[in-house]
Write a protein that binds this DNA or RNA. Structure first.
Length: 258
DNA sequence: CCGGATGTTCACCT
DNA sequence: GAGGTGAACATCCG
């Protein structure tokens, strides 16, 4: 589930722990720790530290501590966050909705409560002091000047938008929805966009993220229903195309998107 | 049984 | 170097 919108809801839930002290760190499987030596090392760095802030960049949730270290949490496709039993998102399309121990991949206990990452497919990960310089500007506040360098590419427009190095936070659903709203074909070379199209694209991405956030998730787009049904374009009624672009299934309207 | 799924990474081609 | 493809990760669902 997690695209930027979902991770933002996790960030909000975790923010209630700000100011507390980390008392324990749990991780049953070291494979979940990326670029982080092991659980013992992570514990020595985090346990006893105070949680100073909870941030987010793209799809990465960032837990800041008073020791200067930051813990980055990625949720993969099926990761959810549970804070003292409260889950901002409980319905996951590609994973079970239960909270069994088998999916509790990573946990942080604090003086104010505990947070658990529930991730059946284990596609998420946790990383100490993640390198954020490899991520592009956050999609929620994207500006056309920030995206222009990435658009100077011969790759498919959709592939560029999915690349977290170009712009951080967009996933398959948000990209398809944004391109459909902007009337831009996903397979067009990114470099073929004119100045007006670039502006339209960025404006549409920002608006789409904001609107679907209010609606409650990346799956609440206008294209979603037709996407699930492989149906007709909600705008013009023509049959939607199903292609593979940027390595992902892509639903789009060849009539409306040019 | 098979294929695909809101993600990322890596090996291997062209 | 740039890009593309396919596999892998682990689980559920149609």
């Amino acid at each position: 589930m997690p695209e930027l919108i979902e991770v933002e809801s996790y960030r909000t839930a975790a923010a209630r722990l700000v100011g507390s002290r980390i008392t324990r760190v749990e991780c049953a499987d070291d494979r979940y720790l990326r670029h982080t030596v092991d659980l013992l090392a992570l514990r020595s760095v985090l346990e006893g530290a105070r949680l100073t802030d909870v941030g987010r960049h793209g799809k990465v949730m960032l837990l800041g501590t008073d020791r200067g270290h930051v813990l980055g949490v990625r949720f993969g496709m099926t990761g959810r966050l549970s804070v003292d039993g409260y889950e901002p998102i409980t319905e996951l399309r590609y994973g079970p909705s239960g909270t069994g121990d088998g999916v509790r991949r990573f946990g942080i206990g604090t003086t104010a409560g505990a947070a658990w990452v529930l991730d059946p497919r284990r596609l998420g990960s946790v990383e100490l002091d993640p390198d954020l310089t490899v991520l592009g500007p956050d999609a929620a506040s994207l500006r056309v000047d920030d995206l222009r360098p990435a658009l100077r590419s011969s790759r498919a427009l959709k592939a560029v938008l999915l690349d977290q190095q170009s712009v951080a936070g967009l996933g398959n659903l948000l990209v398809d929805e944004s391109l459909w709203r902007a009337g831009l074909a996903p397979g067009r070379p990114a470099e073929s966009l004119g100045a007006a199209e670039q502006v339209r694209l960025v404006r549409t991405v920002v608006r789409t993220v904001a609107q679907l956030t209010r609606r409650g998730g990346s799956h609440t787009g206008d294209l979603q229903e037709a996407r699930d049904a492989r149906g007709a374009c909600p705008r013009c009624g023509a049959a939607l195309a199903v292609d593979r672009i940027g390595g992902r299934t892509t639903i789009w309207c060849p009539g409306d998107q040019r």
